[in-house]
Design a protein around this nucleic acid. Structure first.
Lengths: 285, 285
DNA sequence: GCGCTGTAATACCCGGGAGGTATCACCGAG
DNA sequence: CTCGGTGATACCTCCCGGGTATTACAGCGC
């Protein structure tokens, strides 16, 4: 059985992502020839062509696509094993430590309630909060930087994790304060998706790409706040966005936007007592 | 960053499972001293004690428990990457191949319908059927021996996989043909759980252990069939068990047994067109 | 007390292979 | 036809993974 070392996977993923041996070697901190040789050996061992070497760089074969997908998952799992083992041993006392990943732009209120409730439990594990960008919670759970995360459907995908539903809320339209639509008691998606002179802001999808459209491409909450305040865009945002609105902003409930559901999610094979305690506290909120 | 090679994980898992360096080394096909050294290096690199060496063998520390869990998952993911890549490259033509894992004791009828319907689709992938024992589908999906599986809740756990529900059915009591209870139109769990002289058969749980009780420990369907036919036990079994009953058996519907739901399940990160086609066919059944 | 047994750790050696440098072979652009 | 940029090859070095022999130590029988 060909037993695929971590090093080989790392090398292959680098080449498959760069589609260029030289750059991949640089990224890996090594010279190009040994990298070429390692990939050739890997292909021989698997008995499969992974890369198509043509003039001007390389492309992935079907098997290469598969190995890229699966290899990334395997590397994540390996990194997770290392990180979680190290963390479990760091303070090997009775008090375990948990890392909770949460979107920085998420609901502060919910997070506060959860942490307070958990801290009040007797013998509760210490919880470190790791705030991250838009959709990084999934990667953090997968590669072990976090043990548990707050995720928001439909923005995050819960695929591959265990989860419990915590709360559901509607969405609002965030408009410049003086805009005519801001006076309306409620709006529909159709109302805000085609406002003359006020294009709808575009968020990156799960793959990091932006949907097409005339509106500005948003990367973080502060940028969005500025653009709305400047009267350049209108945004669809979960209810919890009300907590950071400025005086220059107006929020109007949307009647037909999909609900945003907050979940607490964790890797499915977790067996930790500390994690179980945190989840129990969360679902009781 | 300590980057945990596959080899190290393999070694550690072997030692953690055997709790004995000598036996682990034998299982790995190597000598004991290099294994000891490798584990020591691993502990130094992670900066964490994984094993407690006391007189008469070793025991796992907390960090060791974590690394065993996570390490197994990582090794499975790595093996899956190798297997799936190799399979994807084997016949790199337009026809992809899929491996479907199904419990040998499962519903033959459903499997037949699924395979027939799928084969009728134009351009459908070739499907290899891999029949396995009681609860092996999960391991097969995890380590890449299979791409997709038929699973039965509550017997199998869907945790960590994507899945779609295919069908739901009740459970029956399987009794010796001549038994008084066999004449009843229906039974409850209480009726069959305490029949004098006819103890309830015990199935292994997800962890491979048997619940306590007086009945025989069942390992496969044939053994169960024999024991019931001999008048030694009564069993609770899904409806689809009717297809293999003997003349010596009688089946009576159970009114209050949990329903058995058949799912089609697959690894969450799969992106294969062939797999998507099979799933679409399955949910249309 | 003294071996005896079974455990993991240490000492030391050897060979394979991972990685480096220099160079080649190839192809498209100008 | 050269030149720049690509990946592949040739060849060397040395580290480290693995082997054997041995030690250290704890329990057990007598």
């Amino acid at each position: 059985m060909a037993t695929l070392e971590t090093r080989e996977l790392r090398y292959f993923v680098a080449v498959a992502e760069e589609l260029h041996f030289g750059r991949a070697a640089e990224r890996l901190g090594m010279a190009q020839p040994p990298l070429s040789r390692a990939i050739q050996q890997l292909e021989r061992r698997l008995g499969v062509d992974l890369l198509e070497r043509n003039r001007r760089g390389v492309t992935l074969t079907g098997a290469g696509e598969v190995l890229l997908q699966e290899g990334r998952a395997a590397l994540d799992a390996t990194a997770a094993a290392a990180r979680r083992a190290r963390r479990a041993g760091g303070a090997d006392g009775p008090r375990e430590r948990l890392v909770l990943a949460a979107k920085a732009a998420g609901s502060h209120e919910l997070l506060q309630k959860l942490l307070d409730a958990h801290a009040a439990e007797p013998g509760a594990a210490e919880v470190e909060v790791l705030l991250c960008g838009l959709c990084e919670q999934e990667a953090m759970l997968r590669d072990g930087r976090a043990d548990v995360a707050l995720m928001y459907t439909p923005f995050n995908s819960l695929v591959g994790f265990d989860s419990e539903e915590l709360s559901t809320e509607g969405q609002i339209a965030i408009l410049p304060a003086g805009h005519p639509l801001a006076a309306r008691p409620s709006l529909s998606l159709a109302d805000v998706s085609d406002v003359p002179g006020l294009p709808l802001a575009r968020w990156p999808g799960r793959d990091g790409r932006y949907p097409p459209g005339p509106g500005p491409e948003i990367t973080d909450q502060l940028q969005l706040a500025q653009l709305v305040a400047l009267g350049r865009t209108v945004a669809v945002y979960p209810e919890y966005g009300r907590s950071w609105l400025w005086a220059e902003h107006a929020a109007v409930p949307l009647t037909d936007a999909p609900s945003v559901v907050t979940h607490i999610a964790w890797p499915p094979h977790s067996r930790s007592r500390a994690l179980a305690g945190l989840i129990r506290t969360a679902v009781r909120l």
